[in-house]
């Protein structure tokens, strides 16, 4: 989800119509997804490009390069990094932009789930009350520190947002722009938005927004996975990319003066 205001929502999350059993489709694919194994910066990379051409009046003129990075080393096997390079291709500056991912978790069957913000590690965590189900998941903004996290019960009994009657634009704006709401929320059928902002993008400029998505059967390993993802992100961005994914032209020029 991308947004600068409650009436300026650009997203592909569930919509409001039909009690939320529909998906908003504001993004248009420019370059279909491709897998690269091995990748340049990770063992498995996914790359694709989309824009906000289908957002109607909410369109801001944004092009998004989406990449994911998976590392297979044991220390990094519990997380995936998803990276969004958001470029302002419009003729107006974009100010106050929030970006976030909406998750409706059903770790088992939609009952017994709990979520909260981990203050020490700066990530959102989801786990289940069942002692027999040990998998926990976490999500975190890793590209900057202007975090946002909004947890809520899907039926609206906690967190102030109900998605059983659909996910409205106002609710999406609230979930993106409320800063960090620590919770905890649950146990029950829960959702949260993990995001960041506000961001400003000058005309022709771009920003990087990246998230770590992690899972583990152990709390300490879950937090370590998020920390390791932040370390990987530093490495990923320390290598400057040549503009464009594929060389546009190849040329052979005269070698002059002759060095021999």
């Amino acid at each position: 989800m991308l947004s600068t205001a409650a009436n300026q929502i650009i997203n592909s999350a569930r919509g409001q119509a039909n009690n939320g059993n529909t998906q908003d489709k504001d993004f248009q694919s420019e370059i279909p997804f491709s897998l690269k194994i091995p990748g340049v910066k990770a063992d498995v990379e996914v790359y694709g490009v989309f824009n906000d051409n289908l957002a109607g009046a909410s369109k801001l003129g944004l092009q998004v390069k989406q990449r994911s990075y998976s590392h297979s080393a044991t220390a990094d096997e519990d997380f995936v990094i998803v990276r969004y390079t958001i470029k302002n291709v419009s003729t107006l500056p974009v100010t106050g932009l929030y970006a976030g991912l909406y998750f409706d978790w059903d770790l088992i069957d939609g009952t017994g789930d709990r979520t909260e913000w981990n203050v020490a590690g700066n990530y959102g965590k989801v786990w289940n009350n069942s002692a027999a189900f040990t998998t926990k998941v976490a999500s975190a903004l890793i590209s900057s520190t202007n975090y946002s996290f909004k947890p809520f019960m899907n039926d609206g009994t906690a967190g102030g947002i109900s998605v059983y009657d659909g996910f409205s634009d106002l609710e999406k704006w609230t979930s993106l722009s409320s800063g960090v709401v620590t919770g905890p929320i649950g146990a029950g059928d829960i959702s949260h938005v993990t995001g960041g902002g506000p961001f400003n993008i000058a005309v022709g400029d771009s920003i990087e927004v990246a998230f770590a998505l992690a899972a583990s059967d152990d709390d300490l390993k879950l937090g370590q996975a998020i920390a390791n993802a932040r370390g990987k992100w530093t490495g990923i961005t320390s290598v400057k990319e040549v503009a464009g994914e594929v060389p546009g032209t190849f040329a052979l020029h005269q070698n002059y003066p002759n060095p021999l």
């Binding site: 998906q23 990094d76 995936v80 998803v82 998505l213």
Partner: peptide, 22 residues
Amino acid sequence: NPTYATTLGNKVAVTVTSAGNL
């Protein structure tokens, strides 16, 4: 012309789609 792809490089598998969602 697939509209989605799944990261399968480690223990976490996530599908990403050309519509921008996960």
